[in-house]
Computed example of a mutant assay.
Amino acid sequence: MMNTRIYKEVHFDASHRLFHYRGKCHNLHGHRWKVEVWIEGSPDPVSCILVDYNTIKETVEQFDHQIILNQEDPMVQAITPFQEVVTVPGDPTSELLATELAGMIDQKCQDLGLDAHVRQIRVWESPTCYAELML
């Protein structure tokens, strides 16, 4: 089958804090995050679509307007009575979010029976810094 690569850029707004970091980012703060995703695989032979771009967008936007915290952060218990908190298995750095998002997108593709996998992802937490995962 033909190997195809697609690209999608998605933005979301969310707050986080780095529980184990000593510095400004230890405090709860927000970002306008940008996620760039490259996916490779074999397009559907009938539709010629590898992955619906909205599938990628909807997966990433699960983080939109959320508070993202380390699952071990005591702030989770303090905030949860007032609003939902998205927890991750470690401090929610751009590096960790790249790994988490790549896994979520790959799982969604698998659930849909698609022959498609994330090959590269960048998570920007500001206009001048990003973490990149090459898979």
Rank of each mutant, 00 (worst) to 15 (best):
Y53N: 07
D64G: 07
D73E: 00
A78E: 10
I67H: 05
V60G: 03
A78K: 14
L69D: 03
V60E: 01
E58P: 13
A78T: 14
Y53D: 08
D52T: 06
N70K: 07
V76P: 04
S42G: 11
V76S: 09
I56V: 05
D64F: 03
D44C: 01
I56H: 06
Q66P: 07
D44R: 04
E72A: 15
E40W: 00
V46H: 06
E58K: 15
V51W: 02
E58I: 12
Q71R: 15
G41L: 00
Q66Y: 03
I49A: 01
H65A: 00
Q62N: 12
S42F: 12
Y53M: 02
Y53Q: 06
I56A: 00
I56K: 02
T59I: 09
D52L: 05
L50C: 05
D52M: 03
S42V: 11
F63G: 06
Q62A: 07
Q62K: 11
E72D: 15
T59Q: 08
I67C: 02
P45K: 03
P74E: 00
V60N: 02
L50G: 01
E61C: 11
P43F: 09
E58C: 10
P43A: 08
I68N: 03
M75P: 06
K57V: 15
E40F: 00
I49D: 01
I49W: 00
V60H: 06
Q71W: 13
Q77T: 14
V60C: 06
M75L: 15
K57C: 11
V46F: 08
P45F: 03
L50Y: 03
V76Y: 10
P74S: 02
Q62M: 09
L69V: 09
L69G: 08
I49N: 04
P43L: 04
Q71Y: 14
I67E: 05
N54G: 08
Y53T: 06
E58A: 15
S42L: 05
G41W: 02
D73R: 10
D44S: 10
I68Q: 01
D44N: 15
D52P: 00
I56D: 02
Q71G: 12
K57L: 11
M75T: 15
E58D: 15
V76L: 01
N70Q: 04
T59P: 10
T59S: 10
F63K: 00
S47A: 11
L69S: 05
G41S: 01
H65E: 03
N70L: 08
E40P: 01
I49Y: 04
I49L: 12
V60K: 07
D52V: 03
T59A: 13
N54P: 00
E72P: 09
L50W: 09
E40T: 05
V51A: 02
L69H: 02
V76K: 10
T55D: 15
K57Q: 13
I68H: 01
M75Y: 14
T59W: 07
C48H: 14
D64S: 03
L69E: 01
E72F: 11
S42C: 13
E40K: 06
Q62I: 03
C48Y: 14
P74M: 04
L69W: 03
I56P: 01
D73M: 13
Q66L: 05
T59H: 09
N70M: 04
L50R: 00
N70R: 04
D52R: 05
T59V: 14
V46D: 08
I49M: 12
D73P: 00
P45S: 09
V60L: 08
K57A: 14
P74W: 05
A78L: 14
V51P: 05
D64C: 07
